[in-house]
Write a protein that binds this DNA or RNA. Structure first.
Lengths: 195, 195
DNA sequence: CCCGCCTGTTAATGACCGTTAACACCGCCT
DNA sequence: AGGCGGTGTTAACGGTCATTAACAGGCGGG
């Protein structure tokens, strides 16, 4: 729908699996449902994935990796001030949260359902992403101690990742306004952290 | 361990069930595990609860109700300024988040695993709690439109409820410092919302 | 003393579910 | 034409799991 491509079967399955996992939890959805969501049924999925676990692993590793890659691109392209870097990080994270709500939900909800090796990998990617933020934040707010900075970054993630919960009642006018609001809230939180 | 009491079997079971559900998800934990966590085994739980669903229902209705009750007490006791009311709400929510992490986790994670009637009840309680906050926020920031206020409240909930994710690495010195930091972050976000 | 009630136990049941087996179609390449 | 890899299908297996059945000890009140 966005960049689009041939949209291979794998991607189609992953997308639907992400949606279902986010809606009903990893253990709450059966392979038959995932299959039905893409028009094939049940065990046909095993032509594309080694198993249900493999789908979740690929989803979580994928989102973690893309977040980190996006963050690193921000750092690399940040020729300007530290302030601009932090803004770029916030904007990038908001884009992820708004475009891939199911993945954001999975990201901090079903991590423990992974095999040890995959879980370690995801955690490592997450940790690097957090460190990247902490560094950027402490450049903008040098008086902020590291533990406080780290806790604040986690809290701001919680704030930005709240978008899945906004789906209920009368939400905001549009995506642009929501992104702008979230951006302001995040900056406000960081400002307040260093008071 | 904290207020303590006779700590009836029911309460003991609920506490352990909350912890396990938060750790591994509702479908991820079996009744045998819950039983083992309180020293009895497996089907003995059915002397205290109608079923696994009933435990989750009681947990979610309980936390939603207590949040709402706490919020209402803040409103009732707020003889002072609107500012003080908002601070009291924030403090109350932080206390919940820090004292009952598993319940906070469950609260926005396993809601969809409930029977229709229970889910409706929990959602209604949650909605009233949010409305209570929105009203308080708009008293402090009158220029803030209602949709923005509601979205901001949800986002701040995400921020405050991020505490479960802080358990990993080097966290903050103590509970008091964490609570103070979260309080500042929340106020900072609200300040920024009305800019 | 003894009868219920409360609270446990273990064994069995029945459903669900992930995974594999066995089979089939279809399009492409030689 | 023929074979083969990719993609499906349905049926069967095996394990897990919530729930129920059947049974038993303890203990307080008549």
């Amino acid at each position: 729908m966005s960049t689009s491509a041939p949209t291979s079967r794998r991607e189609q399955i992953l997308k639907q699996a992400a949606r279902l996992f986010a809606e009903r939890g990893f253990h709450g959805v059966g392979v038959d449902e995932i299959g039905a969501a893409v028009g094939i049924s049940g065990p046909g999925l095993y032509r594309h994935f080694a198993g249900k676990d493999a789908m979740l692993a690929e989803l979580l590793v994928g989102i973690s990796g893309r977040l980190l890659t996006g963050g690193r691109r921000c750092v690399a392209e940040a020729d300007g001030s530290a302030d601009e870097l932090l803004d770029a990080l916030i904007e990038g994270h908001i884009d992820f949260a708004l475009d891939d709500r199911p993945l954001i939900t999975l990201h901090d909800r079903e991590l423990d359902r992974l095999r040890d090796t995959d879980r370690r990998l995801v955690r490592q990617l997450q940790r690097q992403y957090v460190e990247l933020w902490v560094e950027a934040v402490r450049k903008v707010y040098p008086q902020l101690a590291e533990p406080e900075a780290r806790a604040t970054v986690h809290a701001v993630f919680g704030l930005l990742n709240s978008t899945p919960h906004l789906g209920r009642s009368g939400t905001l006018p549009g995506r642009r306004a929501t992104a702008a609001l979230l951006h302001r809230l995040a900056r406000g939180a960081f400002d307040a952290a260093s008071a």
